[in-house]
Simulated scan of single mutants.
Amino acid sequence: MSVKSDWPHHQRKRFSLGGFLWQGALIVAVLLVIGGAAWNAANGLARQGIASGFGFLNNTAGFDISQHLIDYSAVSTYGQAFLVGLLNTLVVSVIAIPLATILGFIIGIMRRSDNWLLSRVAAGYVELFRNTPLLLQLLFWYNAVLVSLPSKVSESLHIGDVVYLNRRGLSLPQPVLGTQIAAPLVALGISVVLALLLRAWAIRRHRETGRDFPAFLIGAAIVCGLPLIASLLTQQMTGVTAVSFDLPQPGRFGVTGGWQMLPEFVALLLGLIIYTAASIAEVVRSGLSAVSKGQFEASHALHLSPVLVLRLVVVPQAIRIIIPPLTNQYLNLVKNSSLAVAIGYPDLVQVFAGTVLNQTGQAVEVVLMTMGVYLTISLITSAAMNYYNEHVKLVER
């Protein structure tokens, strides 16, 4: 049965044309405002004798950066300094997001525990770290905790001869790729594809038969084992190690070799992980609480263990509720990493919006580039989480 519109055809057409004209006028007005602001800014900078444009990125920076993942020195350009700050920001975010997620899920599950002590400890953790400013927590980790570590290299806290921790930072083994790395990398790619195919087969098998298959464990064994076998075979055939490790070596004046993590980096990482995990724990707790009690009762009636109840019944339903607010926490973590400037970690804000801005005076270009970076990272993170949210949400029939 078709339903006719109450609007005559010519009136609907006129209405659509009017809406189009209004939208076009709005776009033109916005462009005029932006263009006028840019014109006024350019004229103001010209009157003050301040250069404009992005040509300054090719000028010599003239300052050093304590931590850099790419080649950099005082004779490098401002553009290279921008890349160093960007990579330092990214490495903090990439490490902190998964660790904060794991810790947050553990604390959130503990809050739902029937064990009184576990639930109270988790509640105390959430209330303490969520209700105190992140900036104060960063200062606490940097000025109160790390300063109490041993100052002498000989007194460093260490795990065997591979990990050293002292007031100067954390030293870890650093992997070094050899010339024969191609075969293990190809094996890694093949193993990832095999693990994904195995997971898809296990899901289809479970839907058809109801029988579980340890796809995660077997997939992890494939991903870890196949590249290792390829590396060993390559070393056996060529005599060259595909991957070696540069171990830290304690010396008289400090630890050399390995991956040197600055104390500022360690403090920033601890602060972001612990602070964000408290908020993620509340997100997880609310998601678990949204699952009806009937699901728990049905699971207990099937004599499932508490671990299987969480893994197979509760978490798959709660994750659909958890993902949207969890995305916000990831975005907050990325943006909160800019507080690194308070403890001297050379992130994008400290390097580019701080030192470079002070030396060049080109505030408009520097601030716009910095804002663009954070906007791009946030949009990419949001898009990835939205894609995953679409993948796990219920399909209405």
Rank of each mutant, 00 (worst) to 15 (best):
I203W: 03
T209I: 08
S148M: 15
A183W: 09
A183V: 14
P175A: 10
D161I: 09
R204G: 15
V192C: 03
R204T: 12
G210L: 08
I203L: 12
Q137W: 09
D212V: 01
N143Y: 14
A215T: 00
K152W: 05
I159Q: 11
V153L: 02
R207E: 08
G169C: 05
S171I: 00
S191D: 00
L165P: 06
N131F: 14
V176A: 09
Y142C: 04
V163P: 09
A195E: 00
S151P: 03
Y142L: 07
P173K: 08
R205M: 07
L146I: 13
L139Y: 13
V145I: 15
F213R: 02
P173Y: 02
S154R: 14
N166I: 03
L135Q: 07
A202K: 04
Y164K: 11
S156I: 04
V126N: 12
A144W: 06
P150Y: 10
G169Q: 04
Y125S: 11
R204S: 15
A195C: 02
L188G: 10
W141D: 06
Q174G: 00
L217M: 05
S154W: 01
V153F: 03
F140L: 13
F213Q: 00
S151A: 15
P133V: 06
G189H: 05
V186Y: 13
L194W: 02
L185Q: 04
Y125M: 09
R204E: 10
E155K: 15
I190H: 04
W141H: 11
L128E: 01
F129D: 06
G189D: 01
E208K: 15
R204W: 09
A187C: 05
P150Q: 11
W141Q: 11
P133H: 12
L138K: 13
A215N: 00
T179S: 14
A200F: 08
G210P: 02
L194A: 14
G210E: 00
T132Q: 08
G189T: 05
A183G: 04
L157G: 13
A215H: 02
V186L: 14
F129G: 11
V126F: 11
T132P: 07
P150K: 13
A215P: 00
L135K: 08
G210T: 05
S156Q: 06
L198M: 12
L146Q: 09
T132I: 13
L149Q: 11
R168V: 01
A182C: 04
R205K: 13
E208G: 12
N143E: 07
